[in-house]
Computed example of a mutant assay.
Amino acid sequence: MYIFGYLRASTNEQDAQRAKSSLKSFVEEKGRRVASWYWENVSGASLKRPELMRLLDDAAPGDAILIEQVDRLSRLNDEDWITLKALIQEKNLKIISLDLPTSHTALSAHINDEFTNAMLRAINNMMLDMLAAIARKDYQDRRRRQKEGIEKAKNEGKFRGRQADLNKHEQIYKLRVINGLSIADTAKLADVSYRTVIRVAQSYKANEPE
């Protein structure tokens, strides 16, 4: 069984490799090693993740995907989560997550008892579904709070000028903060300067409720 580490962060400002050392230490304590690492800066609410797809393509049946938390793998809606699980199950890949202790048995000595194996698979699948649902709800709650922050900023007159400017600000916010595009890509798509992207994104974040 080869172990593939998967690291993800939502935006380019966040360090996708932040958890690499803790994951590496965890595996080494179990007498194993990570065969390869895959990392990317992209939203967990999207299935458009080139590195995750490359990992799934590289992995062989019976291999394992190592993650820090289930939300690194998924903040997907139900339909996309079912799609991703199907891709994982197609190769009978194991998911090992630091926040899911029952998944750690995949690193232990092989369990020959068929019933025990079946029970562990059922428990892990159930827990994965639960944690994925929690991660999705957290994502939706954050989006709701961000929307409320935008409305609050508008109501308090934090953004002045023409309506066209407000629409442009919201476009920048969605591209940069919500979808996690780079400053360069956001500036290009919104047809504004890098400085404007940075200023608007920081302004929205400053008004985001805790």
Rank of each mutant, 00 (worst) to 15 (best):
V177F: 01
R144P: 01
R33S: 15
M130Q: 14
A122H: 13
K174E: 07
T116H: 08
A187P: 00
A118M: 15
S43I: 14
V34F: 09
N179R: 14
R195I: 00
N125H: 12
G62S: 13
R18P: 09
I95P: 01
E51N: 11
M119Q: 15
D99H: 10
F26V: 07
R162P: 08
R54P: 06
R199L: 03
Y6H: 05
G157S: 02
G161V: 02
S36P: 03
Q171K: 15
F4R: 08
K174Y: 10
K20W: 09
V42F: 06
N167A: 07
E151Q: 14
N112W: 07
R160H: 03
E148P: 02
R32G: 01
I96N: 03
L52R: 08
Y139F: 15
N12Y: 05
V177E: 04
K205S: 12
M130G: 05
L93R: 06
G62K: 13
E90N: 15
L55M: 14
T196I: 04
R143V: 14
D63S: 14
N77G: 15
D63H: 15
A60Y: 12
G157T: 05
N167M: 12
S36M: 13
L131A: 10
T116E: 12
D141R: 01
Y194F: 08
K152M: 11
E51F: 11
A106W: 09
Y204D: 00
L55C: 06
I67R: 02
Q163G: 11
S21L: 11
I183G: 01
A60Q: 15
A122W: 05
L7E: 00
V197G: 00
R195S: 09
G31I: 09
K20E: 07
S103H: 04
M126A: 13
Y194M: 04
Q89A: 13
L7N: 03
L73K: 02
D71A: 00
R8D: 02
E151L: 10
K24Y: 08
N41L: 03
D15A: 03
P101I: 15
E170N: 12
R145L: 15
Y194H: 14
F159H: 01
K168M: 13
I183Q: 02
S43L: 09
W81H: 10
E79H: 11
R33F: 14
I198S: 01
R136P: 02
K154I: 11
K91L: 12
K48Y: 13
S193F: 02
S193W: 00
M1N: 02
S97P: 04
G5K: 01
I134W: 09
N117F: 04
L166W: 15
Q202W: 01
A122R: 14
K30M: 08
A9Q: 08
I178T: 06
Q202V: 07
S21M: 12
K91M: 11
P209D: 13
K152C: 05
R18M: 11
L84E: 03
E114G: 06
R49G: 07
K205G: 10
R176I: 02
K158W: 09
R18N: 03
G180H: 06
T83P: 01
